[in-house]
């Protein structure tokens, strides 16, 4: 077994941190360890916490962390934030809200920028979650901002998705239309210390009756508050109920197979993209080829065929 993997299994937090960086950077030197650790994963419960900006996702994660730690569970947290489209940099601020006793080895928190590499957040996030799983975490909580694409991807990573909304549903209705409704296994109506929580929860419950579901699970709606703590055990209870449903209905298997299919295809796509880039770099005639397309001498399909031939050519 590669030394990196051995160190992770031994509980070496710095080795884990390093491996996560390599996975994020899509660094092939992580591959031997990532491969060796795969058989040790598949035990953790992976829960996505997603929703629009500022609804209290990190605050909820923080209280869930405390709740689960008091139960003796080991917890991994991955907080994903978008990168700036301009500089590629980002400010990852979710840690501010996460408190824990100093030196608590049962927790590992990692902030991640959605760097927008091919396959988006999903590949790197999934592998990071899997490393935390192999490291021995019982539960991995993944926080993502509900900006359309990322939430849908959380569905590819987590077995239970919690969608967080707040009482004033104006903007959220839009986000729900944009796909959040489809992925929610559990809704948290957070900030329920503010007025309007009851009607928001009722509205959501009614919606869950209207939207067609696959299988027999209807999203559960839980009112929560993190400032006047409320609903946290209930929220976790809803998550466990959904997890139990996944097992009893057999849909865990179906969904796992689907996720792994997506993952494998994603990995193939990543390789093909890389090969295509290399082939393009090797192709001195690319400009000439382009000139001919521009001049209407050949069509784009033929140019694509030529490039494809270049990718397939053995080196």
């Amino acid at each position: 077994m590669p030394i990196g993997a051995r160190r992770v299994l031994r509980g070496d937090r710095q080795a884990l941190a390093r491996l996560i960086s390599q996975v994020e950077n899509r660094d092939p030197s992580a591959l031997p360890s990532v491969r060796a650790l795969y058989p040790y994963s598949g035990r953790a419960t992976v829960v996505g916490i997603t929703g629009p900006l500022g609804v209290g996702k990190s605050s909820l994660v923080n209280l869930l962390l405390a709740h689960l730690r008091s139960d003796g569970k080991r917890i991994g947290i991955v907080a994903v934030d978008p990168s700036s489209p301009f500089s590629g940099g980002s400010i990852l601020g979710d840690r501010i809200r996460l408190a824990r006793p100093p030196g608590d080895d049962g927790v590992f928190i990692r902030s991640m920028a959605a760097r927008g590499h091919a396959g988006g957040v999903a590949l790197a996030t999934r592998e990071t979650v899997r490393l935390l799983d192999a490291f021995g975490m019982d539960v991995v909580l993944v926080e993502t901002v509900g900006s359309g694409q990322a939430d849908v991807e959380i569905h590819e990573v987590a077995s239970t998705s919690v969608v967080v909304v707040v009482p004033h549903l104006g903007d959220e209705v839009q986000s729900l239309k944009a796909g959040l409704f489809e992925i929610a296994d559990v809704f948290s109506v957070n900030k329920s210390d503010l007025p309007g929580a009851d009607s928001a929860a009722r509205y959501l419950s009614e919606m869950t009756q209207l939207v067609p579901v696959t299988g027999s699970w209807r999203p559960v709606v839980i009112q929560t508050s993190t400032v006047a703590p409320r609903g946290i055990p209930e929220l976790w209870e809803a998550v466990t109920r959904h997890e139990a449903y996944l097992d009893s209905s057999g849909s865990r298997q179906t969904r796992d197979r689907q996720r792994l299919t997506d993952e494998i295809l994603g990995l193939v796509r990543e390789q093909v993209d890389a090969q295509l880039l290399r082939a393009l770099e090797r192709e001195p005639d690319l400009q000439a080829l382009l000139d001919r397309v521009v001049a209407r001498e050949i069509d784009p399909h033929s140019a694509a065929e030529r490039l494809l031939g270049e990718v397939r050519r053995p080196r």
Binding site: R13, A17, S87, L92, I96, P102, R110
Partner: peptide, 24 residues
């Protein structure tokens, strides 16, 4: 273009180093 992990106020040296190691 850097990724900045903002840890916030009133951090103890222990918390700072722990965060730095986890975040690599």
């Amino acid at each position: 273009g850097m990724e900045v992990i903002y840890a916030g106020l009133r951090q103890t040296p222990e918390e700072i180093v722990e965060s730095a190691l986890e975040e690599d």
